[in-house]
Amino acid sequence: MADKIDIKNVAKLASIKLNQEEEDRLKNDLSMIIEHFDALSKMDLPDDKISIHPLGMSLNLAEDIASKSLTHKEALSNAPESKDGQFVVPPSLD
Protein backbone atom coordinates (compact mmCIF):
# COMPACT_ATOMS: atom_id res chain seq x y z
CA MET A 1 0.00 0.00 0.00
CA ALA A 2 2.81 2.39 0.98
CA ASP A 3 4.27 2.07 -2.52
CA LYS A 4 1.18 3.67 -4.03
CA ILE A 5 1.62 6.93 -2.10
CA ASP A 6 3.56 9.72 -3.82
CA ILE A 7 4.56 11.42 -0.57
CA LYS A 8 6.53 14.16 -2.33
CA ASN A 9 3.42 15.22 -4.22
CA VAL A 10 1.28 15.08 -1.07
CA ALA A 11 3.82 17.31 0.70
CA LYS A 12 3.77 19.73 -2.22
CA LEU A 13 -0.05 19.92 -2.15
CA ALA A 14 0.02 20.56 1.59
CA SER A 15 2.74 23.23 1.18
CA ILE A 16 5.05 21.56 3.70
CA LYS A 17 8.72 20.68 3.45
CA LEU A 18 9.67 17.19 4.60
CA ASN A 19 13.06 15.63 5.18
CA GLN A 20 13.73 11.95 4.34
CA GLU A 21 12.93 10.72 7.85
CA GLU A 22 9.62 12.63 7.93
CA GLU A 23 8.71 11.41 4.45
CA ASP A 24 9.15 7.78 5.53
CA ARG A 25 7.20 8.23 8.76
CA LEU A 26 4.27 10.08 7.11
CA LYS A 27 4.17 7.63 4.21
CA ASN A 28 3.78 4.83 6.74
CA ASP A 29 1.05 6.75 8.65
CA LEU A 30 -0.88 7.52 5.47
CA SER A 31 -0.79 3.94 4.27
CA MET A 32 -2.16 2.80 7.64
CA ILE A 33 -5.07 5.25 7.26
CA ILE A 34 -5.79 4.01 3.74
CA GLU A 35 -5.66 0.38 4.84
CA HIS A 36 -8.09 1.22 7.62
CA PHE A 37 -10.58 2.68 5.14
CA ASP A 38 -10.09 -0.34 2.88
CA ALA A 39 -10.99 -2.57 5.82
CA LEU A 40 -14.07 -0.43 6.54
CA SER A 41 -15.33 -0.60 2.98
CA LYS A 42 -15.05 -4.41 3.03
CA MET A 43 -17.34 -4.67 6.06
CA ASP A 44 -20.87 -5.92 5.47
CA LEU A 45 -23.10 -3.35 7.19
CA PRO A 46 -26.91 -2.97 7.19
CA ASP A 47 -28.12 0.21 5.47
CA ASP A 48 -30.78 1.14 7.99
CA LYS A 49 -28.61 2.26 10.92
CA ILE A 50 -26.37 5.00 9.64
CA SER A 51 -24.76 7.18 12.25
CA ILE A 52 -25.19 10.70 10.94
CA HIS A 53 -22.54 12.22 13.13
CA PRO A 54 -19.16 10.82 14.11
CA LEU A 55 -19.24 12.39 17.58
CA GLY A 56 -21.62 10.90 20.10
CA MET A 57 -21.32 13.83 22.46
CA SER A 58 -23.39 16.88 23.29
CA LEU A 59 -22.48 20.31 22.01
CA ASN A 60 -20.90 22.88 24.26
CA LEU A 61 -21.63 26.45 23.30
CA ALA A 62 -19.28 29.30 24.14
CA GLU A 63 -20.47 32.50 25.82
CA ASP A 64 -20.28 35.52 23.52
CA ILE A 65 -17.29 37.07 25.22
CA ALA A 66 -14.60 38.33 22.88
CA SER A 67 -10.97 37.97 23.78
CA LYS A 68 -7.73 39.12 22.26
CA SER A 69 -6.04 36.62 20.02
CA LEU A 70 -3.14 36.96 17.60
CA THR A 71 -1.47 40.26 16.87
CA HIS A 72 -1.64 41.53 13.30
CA LYS A 73 2.03 40.59 12.86
CA GLU A 74 1.55 37.08 14.24
CA ALA A 75 -1.53 36.52 12.06
CA LEU A 76 0.43 37.32 8.89
CA SER A 77 3.63 35.56 9.94
CA ASN A 78 2.86 32.29 8.11
CA ALA A 79 1.70 33.96 4.90
CA PRO A 80 3.97 33.25 1.92
CA GLU A 81 3.12 36.73 0.64
CA SER A 82 1.51 39.80 2.15
CA LYS A 83 1.08 43.45 1.28
CA ASP A 84 -0.50 46.47 3.02
CA GLY A 85 -1.50 44.24 5.93
CA GLN A 86 -3.36 41.82 3.64
CA PHE A 87 -2.73 38.24 2.59
CA VAL A 88 -1.79 38.05 -1.08
CA VAL A 89 -2.83 35.03 -3.16
CA PRO A 90 -2.95 34.27 -6.89
CA PRO A 91 -5.91 35.92 -8.67
CA SER A 92 -9.20 34.19 -8.00
CA LEU A 93 -12.87 34.67 -8.60
CA ASP A 94 -15.21 34.87 -5.66
Binding site: A62, D64, A66, K68, S69, H72
Partner: peptide, 23 residues
Protein backbone atom coordinates in the same frame (compact mmCIF):
# COMPACT_ATOMS: atom_id res chain seq x y z
CA UNK B 1 -22.55 39.54 18.43
CA UNK B 2 -19.39 40.58 20.26
CA UNK B 3 -17.35 37.61 19.09
CA UNK B 4 -17.19 35.46 15.95
CA UNK B 5 -19.26 32.34 15.28
CA UNK B 6 -16.72 29.63 16.05
CA UNK B 7 -13.94 31.48 17.88
CA UNK B 8 -13.78 34.32 20.36
CA UNK B 9 -12.17 36.91 18.09
CA UNK B 10 -13.76 40.36 18.33
CA UNK B 11 -16.29 41.33 15.68
CA UNK B 12 -14.56 44.51 14.56
CA UNK B 13 -15.88 47.39 12.52
CA UNK B 14 -12.55 48.60 11.18
CA UNK B 15 -10.94 49.45 7.87
CA UNK B 16 -7.62 48.15 9.18
CA UNK B 17 -7.19 44.63 7.70
CA UNK B 18 -6.46 41.38 9.56
CA UNK B 19 -6.70 42.78 13.08
CA UNK B 20 -9.06 40.21 14.58
CA UNK B 21 -7.72 36.74 13.84
CA UNK B 22 -6.84 33.59 15.74
CA UNK B 23 -5.76 30.06 14.79
Amino acid sequence: TNSKMFCRCHVLDTESPNESLCP
